[in-house]
């Protein structure tokens, strides 16, 4: 479980995150939604330690990351997997080496054990036949799946995904969403996903927080989101004809 308490973050005079309090539960797919520039990527970066915070606490299973020693933080980072918006795969390595990298860096596994683990993770993301591909030979969806395989190769306790389906077609997006949800439940990990994709919200959003102008504006589940009276969330979620129709149909069903 990850708990955020009274988190403040600013860049110079500009406050980017203002008194954020949230709980991301283990075994659930936790979604952070919000407009571009709302602060959700900064929130994720503070949680993984890529950005420092001004004040507040980020508790990983009760231990505050901010007050951890360098060694403790190092150990924590080894239990974190992250999928970046564009995959952030290493260009100088092929697919298998990308997935193998954390194992080579942090474990004492033999070459055979590593190969087995890499095969397992690539099979898990349905990419059993791309081991020798270079990263430039992969499609957008494949890059995301390789990034997921690399993120889970060390059996992380926490998985962070920054807009995992940006730039993907709807079908591939659903595939990636389902994969994240399955992995979260299968390995009982704490997953936090940044997204502004309505499909993801309705498909995998077990626990959702809405960040608006650096503030936590709304918190709930995908079932609650359609009934919300929160104006900013409604404007964000139901901003086109398709989503408006979807909301109307859900509400109609609820009334019936």
């Amino acid at each position: 479980m990850i708990e955020i308490k009274k988190l403040y973050k600013s860049f110079g005079d500009k406050t980017v995150l203002n008194n954020i309090n949230a709980v991301f539960e283990t075994g659930k797919t936790n979604l952070t939604i919000g407009r571009s520039g709302s602060g959700k990527t900064v929130l994720m970066k503070t949680m993984v330690g890529l950005e420092t915070i001004n004040s507040g606490q980020i508790l990983f299973d009760g231990k505050d990351m901010v007050s951890m020693s360098k060694k403790e933080r190092h150990l924590l980072r080894e239990s974190i997997g992250m999928v970046f918006q564009n995959g952030a795969l290493f260009d100088s390595m092929n697919v298998a080496d990308n997935v193998r990298f954390p194992l080579r860096m942090f474990t004492n596994m033999t070459a055979g054990e590593m190969d087995k683990r890499v095969d397992f993770c690539l099979d898990r993301v349905n990419l059993g036949n791309v081991h020798t591909f270079t990263t430039s030979e992969l499609s957008g969806g494949m890059r995301k799946r390789v990034a997921i395989a690399r993120a889970i190769v060390t059996n992380p306790k926490y998985l962070f995904c920054d807009e995992p389906n940006s730039g993907l077609d709807p079908q591939t997006s659903i595939l990636i969403d389902n994969l994240i949800k399955e992995i979260t439940e299968e390995y009982n990990i704490t997953t936090v996903v940044n997204t502004h994709d309505m499909n993801s919200v309705m498909g995998i959003g077990e626990h959702i927080i809405f960040i608006h102008q650096g503030n936590l504006w709304w918190e709930g589940t995908r079932n609650e989101i359609t009934n919300t009276t929160n104006q900013e969330l409604n404007d964000f979620m139901f901003n086109n004809e398709l989503t408006k129709l979807l909301k109307a149909s859900v509400l109609e069903k609820t009334v019936k």
Binding site: K45, V48, G49, L50, H74, L75, R77, E78, I80, M82, F84, Q85, N86, A88, L89, F90, D91, F101, P102, M105, F106, F160
Partner: peptide, 17 residues
């Protein structure tokens, strides 16, 4: 520089490297 702007350096940092 390319590794920095494509978040590959961030990926290394998150891993604990």
């Amino acid at each position: 520089g390319t590794m920095r702007i494509t978040e590959q350096i961030d990926a290394l940092d998150v891993m604990g490297v």
